[in-house]
Simulated assay, not measured.
Amino acid sequence: MKRILAMALLAFGAAGAAQACPDWRLEAAASYNLSGDQLRKAQGADVIAGGENYIWNCRGINPQSDQGAGYFTSNPDFRFFISDLERYQLVVSVISQCDSALLINTQSASWYYDDDDNGNLDPRIVLTRPISGQIDVWVGTYDGEYCDARLMLETFPR
Rank of each mutant, 00 (worst) to 15 (best):
M152W: 10
G36D: 03
S132P: 03
N57S: 15
P22F: 06
L39G: 00
D84F: 01
N118T: 08
F81G: 01
R87C: 07
E27N: 12
F80L: 07
L102M: 10
A6N: 06
D37M: 11
T128I: 12
D99M: 06
Q134M: 15
R3K: 15
E154V: 12
V91W: 00
R79Q: 10
D122F: 09
I82T: 04
R25D: 13
Y142H: 11
S65D: 04
D136Y: 09
G70L: 00
V139K: 00
Q19I: 05
T141V: 07
S132M: 12
A30P: 00
V91A: 02
E154C: 06
K2I: 03
N105F: 09
D84N: 11
S96N: 03
V94I: 09
E154H: 07
D115N: 14
P76L: 05
P130V: 07
P123S: 08
G16Q: 14
A29Y: 11
Y71V: 05
L85M: 02
I131G: 13
L153H: 00
L151S: 03
Y112C: 03
A14K: 08
T73S: 10
Y32F: 15
S96K: 01
A8T: 12
N53K: 04
Y32N: 08
R124D: 05
Y71D: 00
Q107K: 09
P63S: 02
I4H: 07
Q64L: 03
A29W: 06
N118C: 08
A11P: 02
N118E: 13
Q38S: 12
C98N: 09
S108G: 09
D66V: 04
S35I: 05
D143N: 10
Y54L: 10
A17E: 12
Q107F: 06
M1N: 07
D136W: 10
L34Q: 07
S108N: 15
D143W: 06
D46M: 09
V137M: 08
Q19F: 12
I4N: 05
N118Q: 12
N33E: 14
Y146I: 10
A29V: 14
N53V: 06
D37Y: 13
R79E: 13
E145A: 13
S96H: 05
G50M: 08
F81V: 06
Y71W: 11
G68W: 02
I82Y: 00
L5Y: 04
I135Y: 09
M152D: 04
D66L: 10
N105S: 14
F81S: 09
I48R: 09
S110P: 03
T128N: 11
L39T: 00
G133S: 14
R129G: 09
K41H: 11
P157G: 08
I82C: 00
L90G: 00
T155Q: 02
V91K: 02
S100M: 03
W56R: 14
C21I: 06
G44A: 15
D136N: 15
D23M: 04
C147I: 08
Y54G: 07
I95P: 00
S83H: 02
F78Q: 02
A17F: 15
L39K: 00
L5I: 11
W24I: 13
P76C: 01
R129Q: 15
E86L: 08
L85V: 01
T128R: 13
G133E: 11
F78T: 02
V139E: 01
Q89G: 01
